[in-house]
Amino acid sequence: MTDTIAVFITWTTYGTWMPGDARGWRDRSRGEQLPRPLLERWCREQMTGETVLLEPHDRETVENACREHCLFRNWQLYAVNARTNHVHVVVASMENPQKVCEQLKANCTRRLRQQETPLFRARTWTRGGDCSILDSDKDIELAVQYVVEAQDSQ
């Protein structure tokens, strides 16, 4: 258990954002990293499946799966936004943030495979996810604003 007020979680679909990417990337132990084209190329060559992009109906399924899972777990969901190649969630939970991320991803995968037009891939998501602790109401407000409003303006 933690004293976390909320967590801003982002995870990407498989094959869409590699370590070394020119748009920027995060190393799990060292944080933000500069582009490394050779690393990105090597990672792309190691892929064992095809790149996954979410269609509009997939995005709706992912958002609904996050809402339902948060309701089931009694977590406070502040915002969710599924994009073509990534998902943002702002959620309050007493669970470990990585555990919350993994549970949301697993539930989304299950729901994507059960939808009317199933999305079956060996890997749907990249490993892990980025979890930023939000320890003030202002931080939560800014994260929610980013998730809800800023995604469509980029």
Rank of each mutant, 00 (worst) to 15 (best):
T84C: 13
N96D: 13
L54Q: 03
D152R: 15
P19Q: 07
C108F: 10
R30H: 04
W25I: 04
S132F: 12
G31F: 01
Y78D: 09
V91I: 13
R59G: 03
R41Y: 08
P97I: 05
E60T: 14
T124I: 15
S153I: 15
W75I: 06
R44G: 08
M1Q: 09
N64I: 10
I140R: 00
G15P: 05
L77T: 10
V80G: 02
R127L: 02
D152A: 14
E95G: 05
Y146I: 10
H69A: 10
G31N: 00
A6G: 12
D58Q: 07
R111K: 14
R121S: 10
G24P: 02
L34D: 00
R59V: 02
D137C: 01
T124E: 02
T84S: 15
R23L: 11
C101A: 13
L134T: 01
L38D: 15
D27M: 00
V7R: 03
I140N: 00
E55F: 11
A79N: 01
G31S: 01
W42I: 09
Q103T: 07
E45Q: 15
W125F: 02
S153V: 14
P19S: 06
W25N: 03
Q115D: 08
C131R: 00
L104S: 07
W125V: 01
A106W: 11
I5P: 05
L134R: 01
V52W: 00
Q46K: 13
R59P: 02
D27H: 04
G128D: 00
S29Y: 09
V144M: 07
P19M: 06
E68V: 08
T124H: 04
C131H: 00
N85Q: 11
D130Y: 06
I5N: 09
G24W: 01
R111G: 06
K99T: 14
